[in-house]
């Protein structure tokens, strides 16, 4: 319905088609583009940046979150720093990235890591801090080793929080990677969007924007699916109220 209205508005030049081309034209253009190597290369570049960004953020945020969450002292000591750094918008770091990196993978990954680390760190901390005291007392009474407590009690118990954190971090990582590509000119969908704009290929530009949106939806769906499987034991996923 919405698509039909846009189509009509664009075809009748109610909105000039150099601003908003007809959706059918966009579709035709992007399908044609998909026959070319550079289209897939752009997607691969963007996904590589996304995965690296999210992966590195996870490697930093999850262990740090466990450490901070399991000690009241570390929690209090680090809170001011975290509360100060967390609200810093990643895009404000772009000038810094220009100074530090060439327009390549590292720059956009740096932005993605910086942005994705915070939500994941905060979620991990909360998850660890919300473990039921009795679950820890039980483990302690059975002399369960620290290593096993972390991997079989703390982490599973914090998993609902972690899953939410990962989903947010995934979205944030994708956004920042594409931002990095547009602003820094690192290869990927963002750069393709920018180049299409410079070449006045409006249909193509919209086509790539659409692809970026579809990537976001797909990644979110993948995470939601994994979350459902991993948390089947959790009250929110059981489907009954007992």
């Amino acid at each position: 319905m919405v698509l039909a209205v846009i189509e009509l508005a664009a075809r009748t030049e109610l909105i000039p088609s150099r601003f908003l081309p007809p959706p059918t034209a966009v579709a035709v253009r992007i399908v044609a583009e998909a026959a070319q190597g550079r289209f897939w290369l752009a997607i691969v570049d963007t996904l590589a940046g996304w995965a690296l960004g999210l992966g590195i953020a996870a490697l930093i945020a999850i262990p740090a979150g466990i450490l901070i969450g399991s000690s009241e002292f570390v929690y209090r000591a680090t809170r001011p720093i975290i509360e100060f750094l967390r609200p810093v918008p990643s895009v404000a770091l772009i000038p810094l990235v220009f100074l530090l990196f060439s327009p390549s993978l590292e720059g956009k990954v740096f932005l993605a890591v910086f942005a994705a680390t915070w939500p994941l760190l905060v979620q991990t901390q909360y998850g660890i801090r919300n473990v039921l005291p009795l679950q820890l007392d039980t483990a302690r009474s059975f002399q369960i080793s620290r290593h096993r407590v972390i991997f079989r009690v703390l982490l599973p118990s914090a998993l609902p929080y972690l899953a939410t954190g990962l989903r947010i971090a995934s979205t944030v990582s994708l956004i920042l990677v594409i931002t990095g590509e547009i602003v820094l000119g690192a290869p990927g969908i963002g750069k393709a969007i920018n180049e299409a704009r410079e070449g006045a290929a409006v249909e193509l530009m919209y086509g790539y924007v659409l692809i970026a949106g579809m990537l976001g939806v797909m990644l979110n769906a993948v995470f939601a699916g994994v979350e459902r499987r991993a948390l089947h034991w959790h009250a929110s996923q059981r489907g009954t109220t007992t």
Partner: peptide, 19 residues
């Protein structure tokens, strides 16, 4: 907590691990 002692708590739902 020594190896010689095992505990059974009143609140079984929180003492057993749901995962």
């Amino acid at each position: 907590p020594p190896l010689e002692i095992a505990l059974v708590f009143q609140d079984y739902s929180a003492s057993l691990y749901p995962w």
